[in-house]
Amino acid sequence: MGAGHHHQLYRPGDTPVHRLPPQCKLLAVVAFAIVVVATPRERFWAFGAYAVLLAGVAVVARVPPGFVIRRMVVELPFLLFVFAIPVIGLGERVEVLGLELSREGLWASWNILAKATLGVVASILLAATTEPRAMILGAQRLRVPQLLVQIAMFMVRYLDVIMDETRRMRVARESRGFRARDLRQAPILAKSAGALFIRSYERGERVHLAMLSRGYTGTMPVISDMSAGVRQWLTAGALPLAAAAVAVLTTLLAHLPGLGLT
């Protein structure tokens, strides 16, 4: 079943980044994001350095730029919002390309744009080098609540099954001459969505019965040992540590007068 045998976001490979235990990578990305968000928006140099660091990770992980850029589409809705802020922003106005824009708004846009983009790229790199199931095991190692881990696990497992069911329902609809042309067809699609929900719900019940039959008592037995060594933690830590160093350095420079970096 299912055509896409690999998850869209995952890019199989065997690089040092791929080999790192998932829990290390997860924490590294979270720490990196915290450093990025904590950096004052005036430190242009710092954001440039962060971008270079991510590019370095991409090179080591052999993730081509095109792969990352195509997946950055998820950021588009945010960008629309970002471009609106300077136009609707209040306060002091500056003229850019013949447009009267809010100075405060421009700063806010830059802030969101830079930080969101860095965060999105870091997440894309994480997803490109970590299989979905490894990600879940990593989350489990990091003591994410059992219930959330199990929900995520079922999502990964049954996504294909449900997509398949959706496809079969669509084929069945269209085989009987249905075509979604305009809003008048919406009720049919809504009913299909309802039927899909009921089917998924019933499948959930059957899966649960099958689990009970094999002695499930509410917690998943932990059987895989994926402990990470000090070296692996240090390797994964290189990204957030380097970012933190950049943040500290640019802050120091900003407070030394006469260097003209800000």
């Binding site: 696990m153 079922f154 497992r157 099954v161 499948r203 059957r206 899966v207 019965l209 094999r214 037995p221």
Partner: peptide, 25 residues
């Protein structure tokens, strides 16, 4: 108990983990 639809029975990401689920419980 072996259920009729194997998709109901096999719910873990790999065959190994799924076969281990029962004895691990």
């Amino acid at each position: 108990l072996v259920f009729q639809d194997p998709d109901d029975q096999l719910f873990l990401p790999t065959v190994r983990e799924d076969v281990a689920f029962g004895p691990a419980n």
